[in-house]
Design a protein around this nucleic acid. Structure first.
Lengths: 153, 153
DNA sequence: TATTGTTATACTCTATAACTATA
DNA sequence: TATAGTTATAGAGTATAACAATA
């Protein structure tokens, strides 16, 4: 009785998930991005022209948070705010050309991250792991591509 | 080209890890515990009588953080500080009887948590997943039982 | 002097509430 | 009045630096 093993899959998942998120945070720091910024860029890339309210709902974050987030990315010229002519209260948010270029760098970072993280496994084993994780995620009701917890890494 | 799928295993791991940590946080709230407290209790259970400096190093957290953490658990009667007679600068930290009892409740919570999280998989699939995750964790240099990120859930 | 534990401080991140401008 | 966006404020969590007691 020298302390429980305490390494179920649930614990391993939390441990590996935190590790993966931390490594990814380090990698995107080279692009001068933080996880919430990355998450916002991804949502804008997927649904260009949405209002900030819609983006906030999509990210599961309070609308007030988006203001500073959008401000920062806009000042760096990565995204653009355009007024909606039909309803001038709304902004429509788009990626700029520089933003689209950054998204390509981000995709490369993601690939390198995936390869490094899965380096312990063969191609076949990676497919098995992906299948098992997908089923667990679906059963837990997790929406594909959304990240509750660290919003946006 | 309507947005990348963006669901590699690395992303799934981060997503599921955050989910697992969040669910576990909810469960231990019923025991009036927060993740860092749980992590500290686990370390003390595994290595009773260590100094706060040693516990801090074990958790990978600054020693200053432990003070308030130990204070809170001591005031609830879950752990005990005893001066080390050989070196009166040091405290030796132990679980109280109430603390040991709480650890048993915590073990039950952990089992329920594991069962719920793995409910999508058969017994055999759970073993496969555990094996794959263990190998990924080992290759990534993660110490068994330690939790970088959320320290102590 | 070096080390353990402590206190005080500041910084980051995030959420809540109040304000403006448009509708 | 209702809604989009904004600003201001406050709270939690955490890290850094200075301090007292003991060695």
């Amino acid at each position: 009785m020298e302390g429980p093993p305490r390494t179920g899959s649930a614990f391993l998942l939390a441990q590996l998930g935190a590790h993966a998120a931390r490594r990814f945070t380090e990698r995107i720091a080279e692009l001068d991005l933080k996880p919430p910024q990355t998450g916002l860029l991804r949502v804008i890339a997927r649904r260009p022209g949405e209002s900030q309210q819609t983006l906030a709902a999509e990210l599961g974050t309070p609308p007030t948070r988006l203001v500073a987030l959008v401000d920062g990315l806009e000042q760096r010229g990565l995204i653009e705010r355009r007024r909606n002519p039909q309803d001038r209260r709304l902004y429509a948010v788009f990626l700029s050309a520089a933003g689209k270029k950054l998204m390509r760098s981000l995709a490369e970072v993601g690939t390198a991250h995936e390869d490094d993280l899965m380096s312990a496994l063969s191609t076949e084993e990676r497919a098995t792991l992906f299948d098992l994780l997908s089923r667990v995620a679906e059963k837990q009701g997790l929406a594909p591509g959304v990240h509750p917890g660290y919003r946006g890494s």
